[in-house]
Design a protein around this nucleic acid. Structure first.
Lengths: 253, 253
DNA sequence: CAGTGGTCTAGACCACGTA
DNA sequence: ACGTGGTCTAGACCACTGT
Protein backbone atom coordinates (compact mmCIF):
# COMPACT_ATOMS: atom_id res chain seq x y z
CA UNK A 1 0.00 0.00 0.00
CA UNK A 2 2.26 2.75 1.29
CA UNK A 3 4.88 3.22 -1.39
CA UNK A 4 8.22 4.73 -0.62
CA UNK A 5 7.89 7.75 -2.81
CA UNK A 6 11.44 8.92 -3.08
CA UNK A 7 14.07 6.42 -4.05
CA UNK A 8 12.16 4.90 -6.96
CA UNK A 9 13.29 7.43 -9.52
CA UNK A 10 14.34 4.81 -12.04
CA UNK A 11 11.41 2.51 -11.44
CA UNK A 12 9.09 3.85 -14.10
CA UNK A 13 8.83 0.84 -16.35
CA UNK A 14 7.31 -1.39 -13.72
CA UNK A 15 3.99 -1.80 -15.50
CA UNK A 16 3.40 -0.19 -18.84
CA UNK A 17 6.61 0.42 -20.67
CA UNK A 18 6.16 0.85 -24.40
CA UNK A 19 3.36 3.23 -25.27
CA UNK A 20 3.87 6.76 -26.45
CA UNK A 21 4.16 9.93 -24.46
CA UNK A 22 5.21 10.23 -20.87
CA UNK A 23 1.66 11.38 -20.11
CA UNK A 24 0.12 8.26 -21.44
CA UNK A 25 2.49 5.97 -19.62
CA UNK A 26 1.92 7.66 -16.31
CA UNK A 27 -1.80 7.77 -16.97
CA UNK A 28 -1.88 4.10 -17.87
CA UNK A 29 0.12 3.24 -14.78
CA UNK A 30 -2.14 5.09 -12.36
CA UNK A 31 -5.25 3.93 -14.15
CA UNK A 32 -4.04 0.35 -13.88
CA UNK A 33 -3.59 0.65 -10.17
CA UNK A 34 -7.08 2.04 -9.77
CA UNK A 35 -8.77 -0.45 -12.06
CA UNK A 36 -6.96 -3.40 -10.57
CA UNK A 37 -8.07 -2.43 -7.11
CA UNK A 38 -4.54 -1.85 -5.87
CA UNK A 39 -5.71 1.67 -5.11
CA UNK A 40 -9.31 1.10 -4.04
CA UNK A 41 -11.99 3.80 -3.85
CA UNK A 42 -11.11 6.31 -1.17
CA UNK A 43 -7.39 5.67 -1.44
CA UNK A 44 -5.27 8.78 -1.47
CA UNK A 45 -3.12 9.05 -4.55
CA UNK A 46 0.43 10.28 -3.96
CA UNK A 47 0.79 14.04 -3.96
CA UNK A 48 1.87 15.68 -7.15
CA UNK A 49 5.37 16.29 -5.86
CA UNK A 50 5.65 12.64 -4.88
CA UNK A 51 4.58 11.53 -8.34
CA UNK A 52 7.04 14.05 -9.74
CA UNK A 53 9.77 12.19 -7.87
CA UNK A 54 8.39 8.73 -8.62
CA UNK A 55 8.26 9.28 -12.37
CA UNK A 56 11.14 11.69 -12.55
CA UNK A 57 9.28 14.39 -14.41
CA UNK A 58 8.03 17.90 -13.85
CA UNK A 59 4.91 18.78 -11.97
CA UNK A 60 3.13 20.05 -15.08
CA UNK A 61 3.29 16.55 -16.45
CA UNK A 62 1.80 14.75 -13.49
CA UNK A 63 -0.68 17.57 -13.11
CA UNK A 64 -1.85 16.99 -16.67
CA UNK A 65 -2.36 13.33 -15.93
CA UNK A 66 -4.24 13.91 -12.69
CA UNK A 67 -6.38 16.58 -14.30
CA UNK A 68 -7.28 14.12 -17.01
CA UNK A 69 -8.11 11.41 -14.50
CA UNK A 70 -10.27 13.85 -12.59
CA UNK A 71 -12.06 14.80 -15.80
CA UNK A 72 -12.72 11.15 -16.52
CA UNK A 73 -14.24 10.80 -13.07
CA UNK A 74 -11.70 8.30 -11.79
CA UNK A 75 -10.31 10.51 -9.07
CA UNK A 76 -11.39 13.49 -7.06
CA UNK A 77 -9.03 16.31 -6.19
CA UNK A 78 -9.20 18.42 -3.07
CA UNK A 79 -6.82 21.20 -2.21
CA UNK A 80 -4.66 20.72 0.78
CA UNK A 81 -6.05 17.21 1.16
CA UNK A 82 -4.85 15.47 -1.98
CA UNK A 83 -6.32 13.34 -4.76
CA UNK A 84 -8.54 10.38 -3.99
CA UNK A 85 -9.86 7.44 -5.96
CA UNK A 86 -13.55 7.97 -6.50
CA UNK A 87 -16.21 5.41 -5.82
CA UNK A 88 -17.83 4.30 -9.08
CA UNK A 89 -20.89 6.51 -8.90
CA UNK A 90 -23.92 6.38 -11.16
CA UNK A 91 -23.17 4.27 -14.16
CA UNK A 92 -22.94 6.51 -17.16
CA UNK A 93 -21.98 5.77 -20.68
CA UNK A 94 -21.60 7.37 -24.04
CA UNK A 95 -24.58 6.71 -26.23
CA UNK A 96 -23.98 6.75 -29.92
CA UNK A 97 -26.87 8.11 -31.95
CA UNK A 98 -25.91 7.47 -35.53
CA UNK A 99 -27.38 9.01 -38.63
CA UNK A 100 -30.23 6.82 -39.83
CA UNK A 101 -28.94 6.54 -43.38
CA UNK A 102 -25.54 5.43 -42.11
CA UNK A 103 -27.17 2.98 -39.77
CA UNK A 104 -29.25 1.39 -42.50
CA UNK A 105 -26.38 1.17 -44.92
CA UNK A 106 -24.24 -0.40 -42.21
CA UNK A 107 -26.76 -3.24 -42.30
CA UNK A 108 -26.03 -3.64 -45.99
CA UNK A 109 -29.54 -2.54 -46.96
CA UNK A 110 -30.58 0.15 -49.43
CA UNK A 111 -31.77 3.31 -47.72
CA UNK A 112 -34.73 5.38 -48.74
CA UNK A 113 -36.84 8.00 -47.03
CA UNK A 114 -40.20 9.52 -47.81
CA UNK A 115 -41.70 12.74 -46.52
CA UNK A 116 -45.24 11.85 -45.54
CA UNK A 117 -46.40 15.14 -44.09
CA UNK A 118 -45.26 18.71 -44.36
CA UNK A 119 -47.00 21.71 -42.84
CA UNK A 120 -45.97 25.22 -42.01
CA UNK A 121 -47.81 26.93 -39.21
CA UNK A 122 -47.48 29.08 -36.15
CA UNK A 123 -46.40 27.22 -33.05
CA UNK A 124 -49.07 25.97 -30.69
CA UNK A 125 -48.74 25.49 -26.96
CA UNK A 126 -47.84 21.86 -27.60
CA UNK A 127 -45.08 22.80 -30.01
CA UNK A 128 -43.61 25.26 -27.56
CA UNK A 129 -43.66 22.62 -24.85
CA UNK A 130 -41.86 20.21 -27.12
CA UNK A 131 -39.26 22.79 -28.04
CA UNK A 132 -39.09 24.02 -24.46
CA UNK A 133 -39.40 27.60 -25.53
CA UNK A 134 -41.80 30.32 -24.51
CA UNK A 135 -41.74 32.39 -27.66
CA UNK A 136 -44.29 31.73 -30.36
CA UNK A 137 -43.12 31.65 -33.94
CA UNK A 138 -43.31 29.82 -37.25
CA UNK A 139 -42.91 26.07 -37.20
CA UNK A 140 -42.29 23.47 -39.86
CA UNK A 141 -43.96 20.19 -39.09
CA UNK A 142 -42.63 17.11 -40.85
CA UNK A 143 -43.31 13.42 -40.85
CA UNK A 144 -41.02 11.02 -42.56
CA UNK A 145 -40.59 7.32 -43.12
CA UNK A 146 -37.15 5.71 -43.31
CA UNK A 147 -36.93 2.45 -45.22
CA UNK A 148 -34.29 -0.24 -45.13
CA UNK A 149 -34.85 -2.34 -48.23
CA UNK A 150 -38.48 -3.37 -48.25
CA UNK A 151 -39.06 -2.84 -44.57
CA UNK A 152 -39.71 0.41 -42.77
CA UNK A 153 -36.80 1.07 -40.47
CA UNK A 154 -38.28 3.87 -38.44
CA UNK A 155 -40.79 6.68 -38.38
CA UNK A 156 -39.84 10.28 -37.79
CA UNK A 157 -42.08 13.09 -36.55
CA UNK A 158 -40.42 16.44 -36.35
CA UNK A 159 -41.00 20.09 -35.78
CA UNK A 160 -38.42 22.64 -36.83
CA UNK A 161 -38.18 26.11 -35.34
CA UNK A 162 -38.28 28.31 -38.42
CA UNK A 163 -37.29 31.37 -36.40
CA UNK A 164 -33.92 29.73 -35.86
CA UNK A 165 -33.61 27.96 -39.21
CA UNK A 166 -35.67 29.90 -41.78
CA UNK A 167 -33.95 28.18 -44.69
CA UNK A 168 -35.70 24.95 -43.77
CA UNK A 169 -38.89 26.28 -45.27
CA UNK A 170 -37.31 26.42 -48.73
CA UNK A 171 -35.61 23.05 -48.54
CA UNK A 172 -37.57 20.36 -50.39
CA UNK A 173 -35.97 17.46 -48.46
CA UNK A 174 -35.94 15.45 -51.63
CA UNK A 175 -32.32 14.35 -51.65
CA UNK A 176 -31.46 14.72 -47.99
CA UNK A 177 -33.50 13.79 -44.95
CA UNK A 178 -34.48 16.50 -42.50
CA UNK A 179 -32.22 15.17 -39.77
CA UNK A 180 -29.14 15.04 -41.94
CA UNK A 181 -29.97 18.42 -43.45
CA UNK A 182 -30.20 20.03 -40.03
CA UNK A 183 -26.97 18.42 -38.89
CA UNK A 184 -25.22 19.79 -41.95
CA UNK A 185 -26.90 23.18 -41.74
CA UNK A 186 -26.73 24.05 -38.08
CA UNK A 187 -23.10 24.17 -37.06
CA UNK A 188 -23.16 22.81 -33.51
CA UNK A 189 -25.80 21.77 -31.13
CA UNK A 190 -26.59 20.63 -27.67
CA UNK A 191 -29.10 17.84 -27.45
CA UNK A 192 -31.28 15.98 -24.98
CA UNK A 193 -32.44 12.46 -25.72
CA UNK A 194 -35.26 10.59 -24.06
CA UNK A 195 -35.62 6.89 -24.67
CA UNK A 196 -38.56 4.71 -23.76
CA UNK A 197 -40.67 1.78 -24.86
CA UNK A 198 -44.22 2.27 -26.05
CA UNK A 199 -46.91 0.21 -27.69
CA UNK A 200 -47.38 1.10 -31.35
CA UNK A 201 -50.26 3.49 -32.03
CA UNK A 202 -52.69 2.50 -34.74
CA UNK A 203 -51.06 4.95 -37.10
CA UNK A 204 -47.53 3.80 -36.32
CA UNK A 205 -48.53 0.14 -36.49
CA UNK A 206 -49.96 0.62 -39.97
CA UNK A 207 -46.90 2.45 -41.21
CA UNK A 208 -44.49 -0.05 -39.69
CA UNK A 209 -46.62 -3.05 -40.67
CA UNK A 210 -46.71 -4.45 -37.16
CA UNK A 211 -49.62 -5.22 -34.83
CA UNK A 212 -51.10 -2.28 -32.94
CA UNK A 213 -49.69 -2.13 -29.45
CA UNK A 214 -46.57 -4.12 -30.16
CA UNK A 215 -43.42 -2.83 -28.56
CA UNK A 216 -41.64 0.12 -30.14
CA UNK A 217 -38.53 1.95 -29.11
CA UNK A 218 -39.12 5.69 -28.93
CA UNK A 219 -36.25 8.12 -29.12
CA UNK A 220 -37.08 11.77 -28.63
CA UNK A 221 -34.47 14.42 -29.24
CA UNK A 222 -34.47 18.12 -28.51
CA UNK A 223 -31.78 20.18 -30.08
CA UNK A 224 -30.44 23.64 -29.33
CA UNK A 225 -27.84 25.80 -30.91
CA UNK A 226 -26.51 28.76 -28.99
CA UNK A 227 -29.44 28.79 -26.56
CA UNK A 228 -32.11 28.81 -29.23
CA UNK A 229 -34.20 25.69 -29.83
CA UNK A 230 -33.75 24.15 -33.25
CA UNK A 231 -35.87 21.06 -33.51
CA UNK A 232 -37.76 18.33 -31.74
CA UNK A 233 -37.93 14.90 -33.25
CA UNK A 234 -39.56 11.64 -32.26
CA UNK A 235 -38.20 8.46 -33.81
CA UNK A 236 -40.23 5.27 -33.57
CA UNK A 237 -38.36 2.03 -34.14
CA UNK A 238 -40.32 -1.19 -34.45
CA UNK A 239 -39.95 -3.92 -31.90
CA UNK A 240 -36.76 -5.50 -30.67
CA UNK A 241 -35.00 -5.23 -34.02
CA UNK A 242 -33.35 -1.96 -33.10
CA UNK A 243 -30.81 -1.56 -30.36
CA UNK A 244 -29.04 1.44 -28.95
CA UNK A 245 -25.54 0.79 -27.73
CA UNK A 246 -23.72 2.76 -25.08
CA UNK A 247 -20.22 2.15 -23.84
CA UNK A 248 -18.27 3.31 -20.87
CA UNK A 249 -14.56 2.95 -20.38
CA UNK A 250 -12.72 4.85 -17.65
CA UNK A 251 -10.37 6.79 -19.91
CA UNK A 252 -10.95 6.30 -23.58
CA UNK A 253 -8.54 9.03 -24.66
CA UNK B 1 -13.42 35.98 -41.44
CA UNK B 2 -9.71 36.64 -41.61
CA UNK B 3 -8.82 38.28 -38.34
CA UNK B 4 -5.76 40.45 -37.97
CA UNK B 5 -3.95 38.35 -35.45
CA UNK B 6 -1.38 40.73 -34.14
CA UNK B 7 -2.56 44.09 -32.94
CA UNK B 8 -5.49 42.81 -30.89
CA UNK B 9 -3.48 42.12 -27.78
CA UNK B 10 -5.82 44.04 -25.52
CA UNK B 11 -8.99 42.82 -27.15
CA UNK B 12 -9.57 39.79 -24.98
CA UNK B 13 -12.76 40.82 -23.28
CA UNK B 14 -14.74 41.10 -26.48
CA UNK B 15 -17.08 38.24 -25.64
CA UNK B 16 -16.82 36.47 -22.34
CA UNK B 17 -15.19 38.59 -19.72
CA UNK B 18 -15.95 37.51 -16.18
CA UNK B 19 -15.48 33.78 -15.62
CA UNK B 20 -12.55 32.26 -13.86
CA UNK B 21 -9.27 31.11 -15.24
CA UNK B 22 -7.64 32.29 -18.41
CA UNK B 23 -8.21 28.83 -19.84
CA UNK B 24 -11.89 28.99 -19.38
CA UNK B 25 -12.23 32.44 -20.85
CA UNK B 26 -10.29 31.50 -23.95
CA UNK B 27 -12.16 28.24 -24.19
CA UNK B 28 -15.50 29.98 -23.86
CA UNK B 29 -14.50 32.52 -26.47
CA UNK B 30 -13.45 29.99 -29.06
CA UNK B 31 -16.37 27.73 -28.25
CA UNK B 32 -18.73 30.67 -28.72
CA UNK B 33 -17.36 31.35 -32.15
CA UNK B 34 -17.79 27.76 -33.17
CA UNK B 35 -21.26 27.33 -31.72
CA UNK B 36 -22.50 30.60 -33.12
CA UNK B 37 -21.39 29.61 -36.58
CA UNK B 38 -18.89 32.45 -36.86
CA UNK B 39 -16.31 29.72 -37.38
CA UNK B 40 -18.28 27.14 -39.36
CA UNK B 41 -17.27 23.51 -39.78
CA UNK B 42 -14.09 23.27 -41.79
CA UNK B 43 -12.88 26.70 -40.75
CA UNK B 44 -9.24 26.84 -39.77
CA UNK B 45 -8.73 28.11 -36.26
CA UNK B 46 -5.82 30.53 -35.81
CA UNK B 47 -2.49 28.84 -35.20
CA UNK B 48 -1.37 28.47 -31.65
CA UNK B 49 1.18 31.24 -31.98
CA UNK B 50 -1.52 33.53 -33.35
CA UNK B 51 -3.81 32.77 -30.44
CA UNK B 52 -0.85 33.32 -28.15
CA UNK B 53 -0.61 36.83 -29.56
CA UNK B 54 -4.36 37.40 -29.64
CA UNK B 55 -4.88 36.52 -26.00
CA UNK B 56 -1.49 37.64 -24.79
CA UNK B 57 -0.60 34.41 -23.08
CA UNK B 58 1.87 31.58 -23.42
CA UNK B 59 1.55 28.73 -25.86
CA UNK B 60 0.99 26.16 -23.11
CA UNK B 61 -2.20 27.97 -22.24
CA UNK B 62 -3.72 28.06 -25.70
CA UNK B 63 -2.48 24.54 -26.25
CA UNK B 64 -4.38 23.39 -23.20
CA UNK B 65 -7.53 25.00 -24.54
CA UNK B 66 -7.18 23.53 -28.01
CA UNK B 67 -6.37 20.11 -26.61
CA UNK B 68 -9.52 20.30 -24.56
CA UNK B 69 -11.60 21.36 -27.56
CA UNK B 70 -10.14 18.51 -29.56
CA UNK B 71 -11.00 16.08 -26.78
CA UNK B 72 -14.55 17.35 -26.75
CA UNK B 73 -14.74 16.71 -30.47
CA UNK B 74 -15.31 20.33 -31.44
CA UNK B 75 -12.10 20.70 -33.42
CA UNK B 76 -9.65 18.48 -35.20
CA UNK B 77 -5.91 19.10 -35.08
CA UNK B 78 -3.48 18.26 -37.83
CA UNK B 79 0.24 18.90 -37.69
CA UNK B 80 1.59 21.37 -40.10
CA UNK B 81 -1.94 22.07 -41.30
CA UNK B 82 -3.56 23.59 -38.23
CA UNK B 83 -6.72 23.12 -36.22
CA UNK B 84 -10.11 22.93 -37.89
CA UNK B 85 -13.70 23.10 -36.73
CA UNK B 86 -15.16 19.63 -37.03
CA UNK B 87 -18.43 18.82 -38.68
CA UNK B 88 -20.94 17.60 -36.10
CA UNK B 89 -20.47 13.90 -36.67
CA UNK B 90 -22.61 11.11 -35.25
CA UNK B 91 -24.71 12.50 -32.48
CA UNK B 92 -23.49 11.11 -29.25
CA UNK B 93 -24.56 11.81 -25.74
CA UNK B 94 -23.86 10.84 -22.19
CA UNK B 95 -26.41 8.39 -20.92
CA UNK B 96 -26.97 8.34 -17.23
CA UNK B 97 -27.76 4.91 -15.81
CA UNK B 98 -28.62 5.56 -12.19
CA UNK B 99 -28.76 3.09 -9.38
CA UNK B 100 -32.26 1.66 -9.19
CA UNK B 101 -32.71 2.39 -5.52
CA UNK B 102 -31.70 6.00 -6.04
CA UNK B 103 -34.01 6.25 -9.00
CA UNK B 104 -37.00 4.94 -7.09
CA UNK B 105 -36.35 7.12 -4.09
CA UNK B 106 -35.99 10.12 -6.38
CA UNK B 107 -39.64 9.48 -7.26
CA UNK B 108 -40.48 9.75 -3.58
CA UNK B 109 -41.49 6.10 -3.36
CA UNK B 110 -40.31 3.47 -0.90
CA UNK B 111 -37.82 1.07 -2.42
CA UNK B 112 -37.73 -2.65 -1.89
CA UNK B 113 -36.16 -5.55 -3.72
CA UNK B 114 -36.68 -9.28 -3.60
CA UNK B 115 -34.40 -12.04 -4.78
CA UNK B 116 -36.64 -14.41 -6.69
CA UNK B 117 -34.09 -16.89 -7.96
CA UNK B 118 -30.59 -17.85 -6.98
CA UNK B 119 -28.56 -20.67 -8.46
CA UNK B 120 -24.91 -21.52 -8.56
CA UNK B 121 -23.70 -23.57 -11.48
CA UNK B 122 -21.00 -23.99 -14.07
CA UNK B 123 -21.32 -21.65 -17.01
CA UNK B 124 -23.11 -22.89 -20.09
CA UNK B 125 -22.49 -21.82 -23.66
CA UNK B 126 -25.25 -19.27 -23.28
CA UNK B 127 -23.68 -17.79 -20.18
CA UNK B 128 -20.32 -17.49 -21.86
CA UNK B 129 -21.92 -15.76 -24.82
CA UNK B 130 -23.60 -13.31 -22.49
CA UNK B 131 -20.39 -12.60 -20.64
CA UNK B 132 -18.44 -12.58 -23.88
CA UNK B 133 -15.82 -14.89 -22.49
CA UNK B 134 -14.47 -18.20 -23.72
CA UNK B 135 -13.44 -19.67 -20.42
CA UNK B 136 -15.86 -21.87 -18.50
CA UNK B 137 -16.21 -21.36 -14.79
CA UNK B 138 -18.62 -21.04 -11.90
CA UNK B 139 -21.58 -18.72 -12.31
CA UNK B 140 -24.08 -17.22 -9.93
CA UNK B 141 -27.49 -16.79 -11.50
CA UNK B 142 -29.84 -14.31 -9.89
CA UNK B 143 -33.28 -12.95 -10.55
CA UNK B 144 -34.58 -10.00 -8.63
CA UNK B 145 -37.63 -7.77 -8.48
CA UNK B 146 -37.35 -4.07 -7.66
CA UNK B 147 -40.45 -2.47 -6.20
CA UNK B 148 -41.42 1.17 -5.99
CA UNK B 149 -44.18 1.37 -3.42
CA UNK B 150 -46.83 -1.15 -4.41
CA UNK B 151 -45.78 -1.39 -8.03
CA UNK B 152 -42.93 -3.37 -9.49
CA UNK B 153 -40.43 -0.94 -10.91
CA UNK B 154 -38.29 -3.35 -12.86
CA UNK B 155 -37.13 -6.93 -13.16
CA UNK B 156 -33.51 -7.94 -13.03
CA UNK B 157 -31.94 -11.11 -14.40
CA UNK B 158 -28.26 -11.44 -13.77
CA UNK B 159 -25.34 -13.78 -13.99
CA UNK B 160 -22.19 -13.09 -12.03
CA UNK B 161 -18.80 -14.50 -12.95
CA UNK B 162 -17.72 -16.19 -9.72
CA UNK B 163 -14.21 -16.66 -11.04
CA UNK B 164 -13.82 -12.90 -10.94
CA UNK B 165 -15.97 -12.21 -7.87
CA UNK B 166 -15.93 -15.32 -5.67
CA UNK B 167 -17.23 -13.38 -2.66
CA UNK B 168 -20.59 -13.02 -4.40
CA UNK B 169 -21.37 -16.64 -3.55
CA UNK B 170 -21.30 -15.88 0.17
CA UNK B 171 -23.27 -12.64 -0.04
CA UNK B 172 -26.93 -13.14 0.92
CA UNK B 173 -28.12 -10.00 -0.92
CA UNK B 174 -30.55 -9.36 1.88
CA UNK B 175 -29.72 -5.76 2.64
CA UNK B 176 -28.13 -4.70 -0.60
CA UNK B 177 -29.19 -5.48 -4.15
CA UNK B 178 -26.80 -7.38 -6.40
CA UNK B 179 -26.18 -4.39 -8.65
CA UNK B 180 -25.30 -2.06 -5.82
CA UNK B 181 -23.22 -4.74 -4.13
CA UNK B 182 -21.17 -5.27 -7.25
CA UNK B 183 -20.68 -1.56 -7.78
CA UNK B 184 -19.41 -1.26 -4.23
CA UNK B 185 -17.33 -4.42 -4.39
CA UNK B 186 -15.65 -4.22 -7.76
CA UNK B 187 -13.56 -1.07 -7.83
CA UNK B 188 -13.90 0.12 -11.40
CA UNK B 189 -15.47 -1.21 -14.50
CA UNK B 190 -15.99 -0.78 -18.16
CA UNK B 191 -19.51 -1.39 -19.36
CA UNK B 192 -21.54 -1.90 -22.49
CA UNK B 193 -25.23 -1.15 -22.53
CA UNK B 194 -27.78 -2.31 -25.05
CA UNK B 195 -31.21 -0.78 -25.04
CA UNK B 196 -34.25 -1.98 -26.92
CA UNK B 197 -38.01 -2.38 -26.76
CA UNK B 198 -39.59 -5.78 -26.42
CA UNK B 199 -43.01 -7.20 -25.75
CA UNK B 200 -43.36 -8.57 -22.24
CA UNK B 201 -42.90 -12.33 -21.97
CA UNK B 202 -45.55 -14.26 -20.08
CA UNK B 203 -43.26 -14.49 -17.09
CA UNK B 204 -42.33 -10.83 -17.15
CA UNK B 205 -45.93 -9.77 -17.71
CA UNK B 206 -47.04 -11.70 -14.66
CA UNK B 207 -44.32 -10.26 -12.48
CA UNK B 208 -44.90 -6.71 -13.67
CA UNK B 209 -48.70 -7.06 -13.65
CA UNK B 210 -49.10 -5.92 -17.22
CA UNK B 211 -50.59 -7.64 -20.26
CA UNK B 212 -48.40 -10.17 -22.04
CA UNK B 213 -46.75 -8.58 -25.05
CA UNK B 214 -47.08 -4.99 -23.88
CA UNK B 215 -44.08 -2.78 -24.48
CA UNK B 216 -41.12 -3.05 -22.13
CA UNK B 217 -37.82 -1.25 -22.14
CA UNK B 218 -34.92 -3.69 -21.96
CA UNK B 219 -31.53 -2.56 -20.76
CA UNK B 220 -28.75 -5.10 -20.96
CA UNK B 221 -25.41 -4.37 -19.40
CA UNK B 222 -22.12 -6.21 -19.63
CA UNK B 223 -19.45 -5.25 -17.18
CA UNK B 224 -15.71 -5.83 -17.13
CA UNK B 225 -13.00 -4.99 -14.69
CA UNK B 226 -9.41 -5.17 -15.84
CA UNK B 227 -10.23 -7.30 -18.88
CA UNK B 228 -12.15 -9.94 -16.98
CA UNK B 229 -15.93 -10.15 -17.33
CA UNK B 230 -17.81 -9.46 -14.12
CA UNK B 231 -21.50 -9.64 -14.78
CA UNK B 232 -24.29 -9.55 -17.30
CA UNK B 233 -27.62 -8.11 -16.33
CA UNK B 234 -30.92 -7.60 -18.10
CA UNK B 235 -33.31 -5.03 -16.69
CA UNK B 236 -36.92 -5.04 -17.83
CA UNK B 237 -38.89 -1.86 -17.25
CA UNK B 238 -42.62 -1.86 -17.84
CA UNK B 239 -44.16 0.24 -20.56
CA UNK B 240 -43.63 3.90 -21.22
CA UNK B 241 -43.35 4.79 -17.54
CA UNK B 242 -39.58 4.61 -17.58
CA UNK B 243 -37.38 6.92 -19.56
CA UNK B 244 -33.66 7.04 -20.08
CA UNK B 245 -32.22 10.49 -20.52
CA UNK B 246 -29.03 11.37 -22.34
CA UNK B 247 -27.58 14.79 -22.80
CA UNK B 248 -24.93 16.22 -25.03
CA UNK B 249 -23.31 19.59 -24.67
CA UNK B 250 -20.15 20.50 -26.58
CA UNK B 251 -17.93 21.15 -23.57
CA UNK B 252 -19.50 20.39 -20.26
CA UNK B 253 -16.33 20.92 -18.27
C1' DC C 1 -0.79 28.75 8.94
C1' DA C 2 1.14 25.47 6.00
C1' DG C 3 0.59 22.59 2.12
C1' DT C 4 -2.05 21.22 -1.58
C1' DG C 5 -3.79 21.74 -6.13
C1' DG C 6 -4.77 25.50 -9.94
C1' DT C 7 -2.80 28.08 -13.01
C1' DC C 8 0.61 30.28 -15.88
C1' DT C 9 5.18 31.25 -18.16
C1' DA C 10 9.07 31.37 -21.40
C1' DG C 11 11.58 28.78 -23.04
C1' DA C 12 12.93 23.97 -25.56
C1' DC C 13 13.19 19.79 -28.51
C1' DC C 14 10.89 16.53 -31.35
C1' DA C 15 7.69 14.15 -34.71
C1' DC C 16 5.14 14.43 -38.35
C1' DG C 17 2.74 15.85 -42.45
C1' DT C 18 2.34 19.05 -46.04
C1' DA C 19 4.57 21.27 -49.56
C1' DA D 1 12.55 21.47 -45.64
C1' DC D 2 9.66 23.91 -42.98
C1' DG D 3 6.06 24.94 -39.80
C1' DT D 4 2.67 22.93 -37.20
C1' DG D 5 1.15 20.64 -33.14
C1' DG D 6 2.92 17.35 -29.21
C1' DT D 7 5.31 17.23 -25.43
C1' DC D 8 8.12 18.54 -21.57
C1' DT D 9 10.66 21.54 -18.15
C1' DA D 10 11.88 24.31 -14.07
C1' DG D 11 10.50 27.52 -12.23
C1' DA D 12 6.55 30.87 -10.13
C1' DC D 13 2.46 32.89 -7.74
C1' DC D 14 -2.05 32.28 -5.96
C1' DA D 15 -6.39 30.43 -3.80
C1' DC D 16 -8.35 27.46 -1.14
C1' DT D 17 -8.78 24.45 2.78
C1' DG D 18 -7.92 21.54 6.47
C1' DT D 19 -5.54 21.63 10.83
Amino acid sequence: MAASPVNSLAGTKERSAEPGSLHQRILADIEDRILSGEWPPGHRIPYEHELTARYGCSRMTVNKVLTQLAGAGLIERRRKAGSFVRRPHSQSAVLDIPDIKTEVQALGLPYRFTITRRRKRRSTRVDRDLLETAEPGPILELACRHDAGLRTFCLEERIVNLSAVPEADKEPFAEIAPGAWLVAKVPWTAAEHRIRAEGASAEAAKALDIPTGSACLIVERRTWSAESPITFVRLTYPGPVHELVARFAPTQS
